[in-house]
Amino acid sequence: MTRVPEVLLRHRIRIEPYLADTAYGPAVDAVPALVDPSPRMVRAPGGREFTAVATFIAAPDLDCPLGSRITLPDGRTATALTLAPPCSPRSSRPSLYGSQLRVSTLRTTEC
């Protein structure tokens, strides 16, 4: 698998990892990512379909569990809705993003 060069991850986002029912961990600022702000339909882990307001790809070792609070480059905040981790070498399913983590976000609000 190939890894997207960091120079192509031109956006910087802020992530507050979701830890429990209402707790967020310490924020991680200036995380390199490539943000696609266009809306798209995604299926949540429970099977419900939602319109994600943005999708981003980042390094595969990024700590971003479902429910994490994300601040996008334009200042909007969102919640991590779906995660598409990189495929393992044993997986037969190809990954469009190589070894990168793909996250879709939902429920944005203006800051």
Rank of each mutant, 00 (worst) to 15 (best):
S91C: 15
I15L: 11
L8E: 10
V7R: 12
S88E: 05
L106K: 03
G25K: 15
L9T: 03
G46H: 07
R107W: 05
V42K: 01
T108D: 12
S99L: 11
D63K: 15
H11C: 11
G75T: 14
L62K: 08
L19D: 11
T55D: 01
M1L: 12
M41D: 03
Q100C: 06
R76T: 13
P85C: 04
A84Q: 12
R3A: 10
A59M: 07
P39I: 00
I13G: 14
L83V: 10
E16R: 14
S91M: 09
S99N: 12
L101G: 04
A54E: 07
E16V: 04
V4Q: 10
V4C: 12
E16D: 12
C111V: 00
S95A: 15
L34I: 02
R14F: 01
R48M: 06
P32A: 07
L34H: 12
H11E: 10
R76S: 13
I70Q: 07
G75V: 15
P94M: 08
S88G: 14
T22I: 07
V42G: 02
R14A: 13
C111A: 04
P45Y: 10
M41L: 04
C64A: 13
G47T: 00
V53Q: 08
A27T: 11
G25Q: 12
M1C: 10
E6R: 13
D74M: 14
L8F: 12
A33Y: 12
R43P: 00
D63C: 15
S38Q: 12
R69P: 01
R90S: 13
A59I: 05
D29L: 07
L81I: 00
S88Q: 08
L8A: 13
T79N: 05
T55R: 11
F56W: 13
P94T: 06
